[in-house]
Design a protein around this nucleic acid. Structure first.
Lengths: 203, 203
DNA sequence: CCGCAATGTAAACAATGATTACACTCGAGA
DNA sequence: TCTCGAGTGTAATCATTGTTTACATTGCGG
């Protein structure tokens, strides 16, 4: 007489998804690094060995969580700069670029633990999102918009990579408490100006 | 009839330093995250509990290692840009700046595991080096040299922070295998140009 | 209705972080 | 020189974890 769940399969429910959800929540609470399969299984009311039906080992779960993180990030990007839309004018292009950077920084601040995992020991990269387009593609789109309105020169690979590192570095340094707590959005804005100044339209 | 070591104290030797050395070597071999106090003690021929005379817990050792990392980084900076020296002309100032960035990137590539620890879960920052000047100070010095020769405008705090994030982001993304293996030094050089272009002398 | 594959259980092994009560050892002071 | 105590290491122990194995259950497809 266990209660009925819609996509429930077999025995105990959708354990794989439950484990993932559990891990994602742990990530949200900054307890990712100390996440234990045993405690997870315990909290999910399941035996320790059960998890191994769905994940080869702990690292496998962590990798999946990291992938999930990149997909979450992609969602944020889509929110800030819908991929099937275009900037209407120069100001809009700037706004969208700042919005993108802001999404990146905000994400790293809201999910520091997940962030560390994503760029941590598994050698993953922004390109490893399963979602299409991948996180890296948005930046390129935004830069092309800016170039279209003459804000910057047409972004080649080095320029795009440079912009990426600048935003990534900002996020990485701001997600630690070591940085002064000036208004985040003003910092991001200032950084975006620097970035754009670095690739002037004259080429 | 135990053999005599110079700075040996007491009983078994200088265990605290031995543990640190062991951990630093593990860092060099990329096995930092899985470093175990037990294995360390075992390899050092000492009982598991002994380590706790010198480090409150595992994290305490890790924190010390991270500090050590920042000090190592400071040494590299000192090598690339001796703090008690000055750029002789514009080209020299540029060279020194690139050298600094290069040191940063190279360090992150040669010690990825240590790198992750340093900027990892302990919320440390470049300023937390015990060595004086701290790692953050070198960048300021270099930027001031550049300003002195008219390459960039006088660096205010936002500009200095921007330069830091750009270099840090580059290091962080390049220490993972995800990035194309173009010639590192050419990438660094290209990045430095971008950074300097972002803060033009006219203000 | 039966049987098989997917799924979960129970028990066990090896390893780890950490604590505690105890023992040794070296050196400073009587 | 002798003693005594702080500093240091030991042994034993506890709680916890990752992981594997042999076994049970369940539920769907034939």
């Amino acid at each position: 007489m266990t209660d009925v769940k819609e996509p429930t399969r077999h025995h105990h429910g959708n354990l794989k998804q439950a484990l993932l959800d559990y891990a994602m929540q742990a990530a949200g609470e900054g307890e990712l690094e100390s996440l234990s399969l045993r405690k997870a299984s315990r909290d999910l009311g399941v035996s320790p060995g059960a998890a191994y039906r769905h994940f080869a080992d702990r690292d496998s779960l962590m990798r999946t969580v990291a992938q999930n993180g990149f997909d979450m990030l992609a969602e944020r990007f889509e929110g800030a700069l819908p991929f099937n839309s275009d900037a209407s004018d120069e100001d809009d292009a700037r706004r969208r670029f700042v919005g993108l950077a802001s999404a990146y920084v905000t994400f790293s601040q809201e999910h520091p633990s997940l962030w560390r995992l994503m760029f941590g020991p598994y050698g993953l990269s922004p390109r490893s999102a399963t979602a299409r387009p991948s996180t890296y593609d948005w930046l390129g789109k935004s830069l092309h918009e800016l170039a279209k309105f003459g804000v910057i020169h047409t972004p080649d690979a080095p320029a795009q990579f440079f912009a990426w590192t600048a935003i990534h570095g900002l996020s990485d340094l701001m997600h630690s408490p070591a940085v002064s707590d000036r208004n985040t959005s003003s910092i991001v804005h200032s950084h975006c100006c620097f970035i754009l100044d670095a690739m002037p339209p004259t080429g």
